[in-house]
Structure formats: structure tokens, C-alpha cells
Design a protein around this nucleic acid. Sequence first.
DNA 1: TCTTTCCTGACATTAAGCTGAAAGTCATAT
DNA 2: ATATGACTTTCAGCTTAATGTCAGGAAAGA
Lengths: 218, 218
Amino acid sequence: MRILLVEDTVGLGEAIQDQITAEGHAVDWVETISHAETSLHSTHYDLVLLDLMLPDGSGIELLIKIRKAGKTVPVIILTARDQISDRIKGLNAGADDYLIKPFDLSELSARIAAVSRRYAGNPNPLLQIGPLEIDLSKHLISRAGTSINLTAREWALFEAFIQRPGTLISKSQLEDHLYAFGTEIESNTIEVYISRLRKKLGRDLLETVRGLGYRMPC
Amino acid sequence: MRILLVEDTVGLGEAIQDQITAEGHAVDWVETISHAETSLHSTHYDLVLLDLMLPDGSGIELLIKIRKAGKTVPVIILTARDQISDRIKGLNAGADDYLIKPFDLSELSARIAAVSRRYAGNPNPLLQIGPLEIDLSKHLISRAGTSINLTAREWALFEAFIQRPGTLISKSQLEDHLYAFGTEIESNTIEVYISRLRKKLGRDLLETVRGLGYRMPC
DNA sequence: TCTTTCCTGACATTAAGCTGAAAGTCATAT
DNA sequence: ATATGACTTTCAGCTTAATGTCAGGAAAGA
């Protein structure tokens, strides 16, 4: 895989570069948004690692530009813990995953591996679950030809089930999947979103296992 | 295997870390409950080694939290000899094994090996018991293709038998398995649940040993 | 037979989950 | 700036399922 790393903290940038290189990927490391744009124009990347605090602007802007240009390259955002609201913005803007700084390099490797499995393996994975057709890379769902729109949160929740079909997933696991570390949820948000997903995608898409969690039948 | 070591005695922590690392496992060593929680949130562990006397509380509390969150990660408790009553609490809270300090490092290795055989060996254990197929990780039971739903309590009880097939298990042991330390049961609840399990899973699944307990034939 | 232990249907109570709607956030257009 | 609309979160009332208890009957052992 060829990876573009956009990060202006030199020490962290080097560490990430070393790690990824050691795993056999090709890394281009740039420190500004403008350099990143240049690189993205001239080269095809399989993955972008994007810091949000950059000298010439916010990484979010770059992400938005990338998506507006119709590029589907997966983007993983690297963000500091105190900018959790960025997470939402990023999800809305089309990020694929998040890492909260400081993070473990092995954690980064795992996410990269996940992305490479999800995308590189089959460039346009079309899942079929029941009557639903799901295009993971484009965040599109359709049933019988008509497309269904999910909001960022709804998609994030749905994704948790897609990744582990048939598996029982507890509410706290779902919270971990939806919310950045440290975010406290003090209501039945998960239940509400389960309800919305069912309404949009079909009542029998998600099975309740009372007291334990939810499961999407394979 | 990736192992989380929660231990605040520096000397002991180092010794354990060295030993485990030498055996090829990955160890994350933290010294407080709050750090342990952080790590558990961000990373998947195959095993937790948990000291009970920690600067910011008792390891038991952490263990209870882990189990309440529905996580089944195996936990081995490291405790001093004079806190044996903790042993009871720990077992009730869902610990998998115990080591009394001071312990031999080779003893620790043996326990870790046992756990790794039990869990990591078959990541998706599919048990076959009589006509039943049991997928432990997915909490699924099926007989002749049709799936059977168990409630949380029923599953917990069934689990006790799965873990020790062929073994005679007394009613009080089953109560210990089902109920948190301190919960008093003043009725024939266990009998009722045995009855319910038999109804759902088959009459001859569980054998009554009058006056002593129950046994699941292997 | 008598006693003890166990089984199981029924039921009140409690807990978990569902969902419409209000309130709060944020992004974009005016 | 302000308004608008989309999305998110919380709340409250409701529905449904699980739980623990009891009681009467069945089975086992003496």
C-alpha cells in the first residue's frame, strides 16, 4: 500500500513513518495541507493519515476537499483528545476511522490493516445483507433499487454490525465504537439509534438479545 | 497473546513483564485502575493479570466493571495470602484463576499457558454437545439448524455446565455462578432455571443427582 | 406408606427496551 | 449576523420480556 502521512509534529511523524515502513508500506510524509494537495494530485494513495492541527489550516478542510473531488481514498484522522467534537465533524466529512493522540503504534497498525483489508482487497466491496445492498466505500445502502440515507451516527452504528455479522455486540461495545474515548453517554442513545436503524433498514435487521446486547443475523 | 498486567509493585511488575515477554507474549504494564481502564478501552487483550491492592482502589472493582461491560476477557488475580476472603469475592466477580503471592514465575507461566489454550487456541469455539451446537463467542445455540434463544440467566447457568462437562455441580455452586457476592436467594430459583433449560434444550441435557446437584453428561 | 427432594405451571414484580417528541448543536444559506 | 434545517442527545411514557417466588404435584428413597 502507498500511504500519505500528513503530520507536522516531527517526532511523531518519524515514528509513524518508521512503523509503517517496517510493515512494508510506502509512505510519503508531508507537513502541510498544501503539500498534501500536491501529492494527492500527482500520486495515487491507498490511505491518508491526516493530522487535524496543521500549520496552514485544519485537516478537516483537506478532507472535505478530497471528498468533494469525488475521491474515495480512505482517510484515518489523527486527533488530540481535547478535540473530540472534531470526531463528529470528521465523520460527517467522510473520515473512515479515528485515532486519538497519544496512540499506540500497534493500534495504528491494526487500523491500517483493517483499512487495507476492507478496501485494498476488493476495491469496491458490495455487501449483501438480507434485502440490503451495501457499498462500504461509498457509504451507500440500497434496497430494491431505492437508496437509503444514513446519518453519520447511524452509519457508524451499522458499521459495527457489518464488521461482525452474527456476533452478539453489547451496548457498551457499541458505545466504544461510536464515541471517542472519554465521552460519557448518560442516556439511551444506543437504543434510540437502534430504533432508527430498524425504521430505515427493516425491523428484523437487528435482533435484540435482552440483557446482553444486539446481533445482526448473517 | 496480548496481556494487560495491572500491578503497582515495581519489582514484581518488572519480573512478571520479563517472564511473559520472554515467552513471546505482548505485555502492557499499568500501575493503576484508571490506567487499566484506559488500556482496556483502546486495546483488545487476551488476558488480564490483576493485582488487588492498587493505589486507586481494589482490583475487584475493576473486575466487576469489566464483567458488567460484558467483556469476557480472562482475568487472573494476583493476591496476597492474607486476603483470601478476596478470593471469594473475586471468583464471584468473574475471575478465571488465582495466584497467591509470593508465587513462582513458572507457576504463573503455567496458568497463562492454560488460559491461552482455553481461549486463544480456538478463537471461535464451536462446541458440540449431544444434538446441540454451541457458538460461545456469538452466544448462539442451535439444534438441527434451528436456533434457540436463552435469556441472560439461562445462558449463565448453561455456561456453568459447559465449562465443566461431566462434572457434578451443586446448587450452591450454581448460585455462586449466577449471583454476585452478597445476593441472597431464598427460593428454588436454580431448580426453576434447570427446568427452563431442559425445556429449551432437551430433557436429557442435564442429569439430576439427587441431594447433591446436577451434571451435564459429556 | 411416608418423607424428602425435585419439577414445573402460573403469577406478581422488576428490569430492559422501544419510540415519539422536545431540546440542544452544528453547518450552511440567506 | 441571523435564520433555517439537519442531526444528535436526552427525556418520559409506554410496551414487553425476564426474573424470582410460590404452590401443588411427581419422583425417589427409606
